[in-house]
Simulated scan of single mutants.
Amino acid sequence: MTIRPTDADVMIAHAIARNTAPAPEQIARGLTWGADEKVLLVLATAGWLASRGRGVALERAGNHALLVTVAASLLPHGLKLLFNQTRPDRLTVVGHLNGVSISGKREDAFPSGHALHMGALASAAATLPASARRIIQGLAVGLSLTRILVLAHWTSDVTAGFALGAGLERLLRLWTGYPVDDPQRSKAR
């Protein structure tokens, strides 16, 4: 199934392509690694190993984080088999003149896997205290936006990926039992 970018997607991508420069693009390209599935799989595996033998709540959180990361890594690959959408870096040639390089496979724009991971992270952070929650959710949104800035994805791909990730994380809570219901924490909200 072929998906076409919206008019707003095209307008945003062209504005980025016209106004980008090599330095900000390189910074965004470096930051986008923070949402890469390979990096996140290594971190989730290390977290899972570190949670072993540390109590039921931490083990449950480790199980949940690893399962969500694996599922969030597989889901976009499956969806990209069903949906074809040309990446904006292939359609905004002016971007290549201003520093934006080519990213990923040509027809794999929908959905953004990086944003899907970040949506899952932002959703899972909802169980944390307010200050930590805000920091993690802000970081997740910021890292997702880098995919738009490097013209790897249309804005709608990133929005859809983020929403899919949040939904996936909430769905997997039903299976993993994360978070453990803490009566004191419920009263503090």
Rank of each mutant, 00 (worst) to 15 (best):
T155C: 05
A15N: 09
L67C: 12
A57H: 13
N63Q: 11
L91M: 14
A61E: 01
A46G: 08
E107M: 13
S186P: 07
R134L: 12
R4N: 12
P76Q: 01
L128P: 10
W33V: 05
L40V: 02
R4Q: 12
N84W: 05
P111C: 07
L168E: 15
S123R: 06
L58E: 11
S101A: 14
E37I: 04
L121A: 08
A140R: 00
P179D: 05
V94I: 14
R106T: 13
A163Y: 04
R29N: 14
S103P: 11
T32D: 03
V56M: 03
H14E: 15
R54D: 14
E169A: 00
S103M: 07
L151F: 02
V141P: 11
T45A: 11
V68L: 00
A17G: 04
E107G: 07
R147N: 06
A65F: 00
H96D: 07
W48R: 14
E59K: 00
A125E: 11
H14L: 10
L164W: 01
K187E: 15
Q184P: 06
H77D: 12
D36P: 09
Q137I: 00
I102Y: 08
G55W: 01
M1P: 08
D108L: 01
A21L: 14
G142T: 02
R185S: 09
V158E: 08
A28N: 09
S112M: 00
R170T: 14
A122D: 12
P88R: 08
A17T: 01
A65Y: 03
R4Y: 12
E59P: 10
L97F: 12
Y178W: 08
L43Y: 05
W154P: 06
A132L: 13
V158M: 07
V100H: 06
H153Q: 13
I136T: 10
I16W: 01
G30C: 08
A160F: 00
R189M: 02
I102L: 10
R18G: 09
L168F: 07
G78Y: 01
F110D: 04
I27D: 08
G34S: 03
M11T: 13
I135G: 11
K105G: 15
T86G: 06
L116R: 03
S101W: 05
V141T: 05
K105L: 15
Q26L: 05
V141I: 05
L82G: 15
I135A: 12
A166K: 05
P76C: 10
K38C: 10
N84S: 15
A152P: 15
D36Q: 05
M11D: 11
P183R: 06
A50G: 13
H117T: 02
R60E: 05
L172Y: 02
G78P: 15
G119D: 07
P183N: 11
I135H: 09
G53V: 01
R173M: 04
R18F: 08
Q85P: 05
I102A: 07
T92A: 10
W175C: 05
V158P: 13
A61Q: 05
A152E: 10
A28C: 12
G119P: 10
V39S: 10
V180Q: 13
L149M: 06
A152S: 15
L139K: 06
L79G: 06
R54F: 02
T127V: 01
G99F: 02
E59Q: 06
D9K: 03
R173T: 00
H96Q: 15
V158R: 00
A124I: 02
A57I: 12
P183C: 07
E169P: 02
I12F: 03
G53S: 03
T127S: 03
